[in-house]
Design a protein around this nucleic acid. Structure first.
Length: 361
DNA sequence: CAGGCGTGGCT
DNA sequence: TAGCCAAGCCT
């Protein structure tokens, strides 16, 4: 059965969240703002996105400005947000939209653009263009699974949930306010219909929710058990010259951390390798190191990616003034950190063992 | 089409 | 601590 959309919209009118990319009540949102925010919000929480969104908008006030910027400038602003393919696609999409002259206004045409899939195309269509469609993200999947008491685990149940969700706006009240209805679903999922401890007692849809009736809301949606996360190991070298610049190299443009800068070092291997002091000075070992040096052990960095854990041993050295070590360009070049594209994991590696703030007392 | 692809906050 | 998972897309 179709839930009463007017109940949800009434709740939304009273509890609507104010967000930087949201239009004021009754106003039409800017498609560029909606698109930019939706790309950033893919698998990323609102609180994390807000400062990135603000920085992007001040650097690139229009989609044309974003299209004409060099990719590295986009990547540098994106650095730390993760899923760097989003930044590449964002840039490519901006160029496509700039060519077209404006954002496409249909789900079908939006979905042809890089980085815009089944969810984002519907989110933009609904929010920016007021087209009656239901964007199915994690929030809407959860709401739908609970309303219908779908017990089959994700991700296998995804097609079923998408089919059920597509009927959430069958109600004429939803058709009358497509933009608000989509955002109301997000707000409901983010506040009352939350993953843990849902607030069913005050939910606008409490009367029609099968999961609430069966006292199983919190358990839904069920998820398939995840595979264990493997661990990989690496040794990275932090070499700082007398000007304070760091030896950095660029990662391949696609793949993990694509296009970001990294400290040179060993491949990221399944095997842990702890060199002895003698090995640290050996040529055979230093083929992974840019130079032979007196290495200082700066400590270990643990970083958890989505599909593996990385344990990094960081060795550091500071070069004396006027030193002229021959360094193979494959290891990188000395760069001021200000201009680097630094992922979070590399920021950790740059900071580890710096002891810049001694504990008081 | 299952898996690659980041990060941080929460319990 | 270790696991969970968030406004997904791409291949």
């Amino acid at each position: 059965m179709t839930p009463d959309a007017s109940l949800l919209l009434h709740w939304y009118d009273r509890h609507r969240r104010t967000l930087p990319w949201r239009a004021a009540p009754g106003q039409q949102a800017d498609p560029y703002h909606v698109w930019l925010s939706e790309i950033m919000l893919q698998q990323t929480v609102v609180q994390t996105v807000i400062p990135y969104y603000e920085r992007f908008l001040s650097h690139f006030p229009t989609v044309g400005a974003l299209a004409e910027a060099p990719l590295d400038e986009v990547l540098q602003l994106w650095a730390g947000l993760g899923y760097y393919a989003r930044a590449r696609n964002l840039h490519a999409c901006a160029q496509a939209v700039h060519q077209l002259g404006a954002f496409p206004r249909t789900v079908e045409d939006l979905q042809k653009l890089p980085g815009i899939g089944a969810y984002t195309s519907r989110a933009i269509a609904a929010i920016a263009f007021n087209i009656p469609t239901v964007p199915v993200d994690g929030n809407v999947e959860r709401i739908t699974a609970r309303l219908n008491a779908v017990e089959d685990p994700l991700p296998a149940s995804r097609p079923l949930l998408a089919r059920l969700a597509s009927h959430l706006n069958d109600d004429p009240a939803a058709q009358a306010r497509p933009s608000d209805f989509a955002q109301a679903l997000f707000d409901l999922g983010a506040s009352l219909c939350s993953p843990r401890s849902p607030s069913c007692l005050t939910c606008p849809w409490r009367e029609c929710c099968l999961a609430k009736a069966r006292n199983m809301a919190e358990a839904l949606p069920a998820r398939q058990k995840k595979k264990p996360r493997p661990t990989r190991h690496a040794i990275l070298f932090r070499i700082i010259n007398s000007e304070g610049n760091v030896l950095l190299r660029s990662r391949p443009p696609e793949g993990l951390l694509g296009g970001t800068d990294e400290l040179p070092g060993t491949p990221w291997s399944e095997e842990r390798f702890t060199p002895s002091p003698a090995q640290l000075a050996e040529t055979a070992f230093t083929q992974c190191a840019p130079i032979q040096a007196q290495w200082e052990d700066c400590g270990e960095v643990k970083h958890i990616f989505s599909h593996f854990t990385l344990l990094i041993r960081v060795y550091g050295c500071t070069l004396p003034e006027k030193s002229n070590y021959p360094i193979d360009p494959t290891h990188g070049r000395f760069r001021p950190l200000k201009k680097a594209i630094l992922s979070s994991v590399m920021k950790k590696c740059l900071l580890v063992g710096q002891h810049h703030k001694p504990v008081a007392g």
